[in-house]
Simulated assay, not measured.
Amino acid sequence: MPRVTLQTIADRLGVSRMTVSNAFSRPDQLSPALRERILAAAQELGYVGPDPAARALAKGTTGAVGILLTDSLRYAFTDLVAGSFLAAIAEELTPTGLALTLLTASGSDDLVPARDVAIDGALVYSCDPTSPAVAWLRRRKLPMVFVDQERAEDVPSVNIADRDGAGAAARHLLDLGHRRIAIATNGQHGRYGFITDPDDVVEGHSSRQRRLGWFDVLKPAGVEPVVIRHPLERTDDVRRDTRTLLDRPDRPTAILCFSDATAVGVLQAADDLGLRVPADLSVVGFDDGPLATQLQPALTTVHQDVEEKGRLAAAALTEAIRRSRTGETGPVPHVLLPATLVVRGSTGPAPL
């Protein structure tokens, strides 16, 4: 069957091709009656609409923005905090008509998403700053916003005060009398398991800032924490190594976790060994996502406003795209949202 085009509809109705095109792209140029006739004919003939690639070429815009994630897209669909962040972005973008395209930081020889996918701009979310994908976005000179990334002077950014929040969590445990404290953190690359030198591993921005915040408080108090490290989604590995950690005679009385999801693995390990939380072990998470209040006991954690972070990131990107199109210059905005400790039932005084 021959492909139905704008000219096909124009020939059917005895009007110009431009008139038919206006019915789809500039409806204010036609009378309601004429536009209705054109749309009815298009439906009858099975016309699927203007070719997106041709329309993008003509307008100089794709109508889509990318979000560059870590190596695995699975994280975007399984992590509740990442899901809330993406939902807030989508909600903020809805009135603009921009679509959201997920990009992985990895690719193949034939397809590198950051290089090959047509987008008008990109959010770079919690990625390795040395990633080739970030370099490709820069090379394309696309408007960008960094989220949970090391700040760059020429790129707008939205970050959380991770270091302050982590420091508050560590101070809370010291105030409760804990001195045998462990850390369960995350990483996407490098060594996993028990880490003897945290300075010797590759970390993302949030991981590094939270580690610095914990150590800012623990080291002056003379506390040398044991550190275990795993990819964010590998709670089973966290559970296994925490079990090993808690099965020692000198087991920690408290554990600081990179995230609420990490805390799940820690709590499971404590339960495996019959340890009571918080009587035998205090646990602190980070994020204050939906999990925090669903756990038993409810999780002491550091709150970050994930939805506000998503809204601000999307707004910053649409503004960066607008400025790129108009050639407007000016200061590049950098937003730092607070991170505050929320004390619940998973922390208590150090056991005697």
Rank of each mutant, 00 (worst) to 15 (best):
Y75M: 12
L142C: 12
V81P: 02
V117P: 02
D109E: 13
L100F: 09
L137P: 09
D79H: 13
A99H: 12
A82H: 07
V134M: 10
E92W: 02
E91T: 14
L86M: 15
L80K: 03
E91F: 00
R115L: 05
T96V: 04
A122I: 01
V134K: 10
A118P: 03
E92H: 06
S126V: 05
A99V: 03
T94K: 11
V112M: 14
A135Q: 13
L137M: 09
A114Y: 06
A118I: 00
I119Q: 01
D109I: 07
S126N: 15
E92Y: 04
V124D: 06
T96K: 08
M144C: 14
L93M: 08
G97Y: 09
T78D: 12
A90Y: 03
A114S: 15
W136Q: 15
E91M: 10
P132Q: 09
T101C: 11
M144T: 11
V112W: 14
A99F: 04
A105N: 06
A133N: 11
L137S: 12
A90C: 02
V81D: 05
T96G: 04
L142N: 12
A87I: 00
R115K: 13
A135D: 09
L103H: 08
L93W: 07
F77G: 05
D120A: 09
L93E: 02
L93N: 09
A82L: 02
R115V: 04
P95T: 00
A82G: 05
T104V: 02
S108Y: 02
L111F: 13
I89S: 02
A76S: 15
A76F: 07
T78L: 10
Y75W: 14
R115T: 05
G83V: 10
A99G: 14
T78N: 09
L142A: 14
A133P: 11
F146H: 15
P95V: 08
S106W: 02
T96F: 00
W136F: 06
L137T: 06
L103D: 11
R74P: 04
T78V: 14
S126L: 13
K141C: 06
L123Y: 10
D120K: 10
T101R: 04
F146T: 05
